[in-house]
């Protein structure tokens, strides 16, 4: 027991140093990525929620309803279109944004993104958590399981797509490329 306790203590200490000196506690389903843009640039891009479908997989569109409210639509290949309204619950320019679905939404979801300066001029460390694990019945399963993606993979994938889009202006893809799995007759 004593050993376990000590190890736990050391790990906690190490983790808080690794992320930043800001005592940022890791939350469930939260991942980090380093992006070669300033916190302000990434904040501005992300704060315009109509940009989110450009890199969030399966998110079809976000319509802005008011400065704090937006309507999110997910188009699923194996299911119907699912929509919910979300509201921004905190917003600190250049630092962080939090949002969640309205209490009466069919889909329960919440997310938070935080932007920290990376060391050595490497841009920003972006911390993203997107929680789809709130009990919400079938739509939540459509969002994740049907696409073969667990919530962790979805958050990581979305972070990588955000990074690629901001650093290069495009998201890498092979969808639509040629392959011998779709042979054609020669004309």
């Amino acid at each position: 027991m004593e050993t376990t306790k000590t190890n736990h203590h050391l790990r906690k200490k190490h983790e808080s140093i690794k992320i930043n000196s800001s005592n940022y506690e890791r939350e469930e389903n939260q991942f980090a990525i380093t992006i070669k843009k300033s916190p302000t640039e990434i904040y501005s891009f992300f704060r315009d929620f109509t940009n989110l479908p450009r890199f969030m997989k399966d998110l079809k569109e976000v319509n802005i309803l008011s400065p704090l409210r937006s309507k999110w639509t997910v188009n699923l290949s194996l299911g119907p279109t699912v929509s919910w309204d979300a509201e921004i619950i905190h917003d600190i320019p250049g630092e962080s944004i939090g949002w969640k679905s309205l209490d009466d939404s069919e889909v329960k979801t919440k997310g938070k993104i935080r932007f920290l300066s990376a060391p050595a001029g490497k841009g920003s460390i972006v911390l993203l958590s997107m929680d789809y694990s709130v009990p919400g019945g079938k739509p939540v399963e459509w969002l994740t399981k049907l696409k073969g993606e667990d919530p962790h993979t979805l958050v990581l994938t979305n972070l990588k797509r955000l990074k690629a889009l901001l650093e290069t202006g495009e998201i890498p893809t092979t969808e639509g490329q040629s392959s011998g799995r779709e042979p054609v007759e020669l004309h």
Binding site: P172, Q177, S178, P183, V184, E185
Partner: peptide
Amino acid sequence: NVRDPKILN
């Protein structure tokens, strides 16, 4: 024989 490639990005 496969489809010709096209610009994707």
